[in-house]
């Protein structure tokens, strides 16, 4: 029995190594096949309120009660960006999102498992690239979407159908080589009236 016990660390390691190998064989950017070309899951969540300038020096929190749902994505091609203030990679990615938002790309934010007030302060401080931000403090929508960890970015067409998911930071390289071509493709496929 004692001899068998000594093999326990080895067995744990073998299991762990098998998992790592599986993780390696998997494209970290690939999305679960179940969600490719499927509509965004239904949801009803509040919009993240914005910071309103009250006395010219201090930024004060004003909550908004408008509920957002999946119709948010209809009519335009959008990026859905999952972020949180506890995620350092999001901090790295953020300035680049601000840049591409300025070129006219519509980005919807999904504030994931976060504190509302911290998130509002973040946007006030670092700039707000999002057309609208969905507040998902419990991570319910994130779970339905299969969020692996912030940041993640989804490409969604004008019918609300998910076309692509990128896990990790969106930077110049990712945008130019992967997301932008796909984004342009969807834009070009838009009916002329909606462009």
């Amino acid at each position: 029995m004692d001899r068998v016990k000594l093999f326990i660390p080895l067995i744990i390691f073998v299991v762990l190594a098998a998992m790592l190998y599986w993780g390696l064989g998997r494209d970290p950017n690939a999305m679960p096949s179940a969600l490719i070309n499927r509509p965004v899951p239904t949801f009803q969540l509040p919009e993240l309120g914005q910071l309103k300038d009250a006395d010219d020096t201090t930024l004060v929190v004003t909550g908004q009660t408008e509920l957002l749902d999946e119709t948010l994505f209809l009519g335009q091609v959008s990026l859905l960006n999952v972020w949180a203030t506890w995620c350092i990679s999001c901090r790295v990615e953020h300035p680049y999102l601000v840049d591409i938002a300025e070129t006219g790309v519509r980005i919807i934010g999904l504030n994931y498992k976060d504190e509302v007030e911290a998130a509002q302060q973040w946007l006030a401080k670092y700039g707000d690239p999002y057309a609208q931000t969905i507040s998902d403090p419990t991570g319910g929508l994130g779970l339905d979407l299969g969020v692996f960890g912030a940041p993640e970015t989804y490409l969604i067409d004008h019918l609300g159908v998910i076309h692509y998911k990128h896990v990790g930071v969106v930077d110049d390289r990712v945008w130019r080589t992967t997301l932008q071509p796909k984004y342009q493709q969807l834009r070009n496929a838009l009916p002329e009236a909606e462009k």
Binding site: L6, F7, F13, A17, Y21
Partner: peptide, 23 residues
Amino acid sequence: VFILAFLGVVIGGSLLLFALRSS
């Protein structure tokens, strides 16, 4: 893949040695 194989040799090998010899 290379690092994982290396981990397998180093960690797996040493733990196997441990299981066989530490008694």
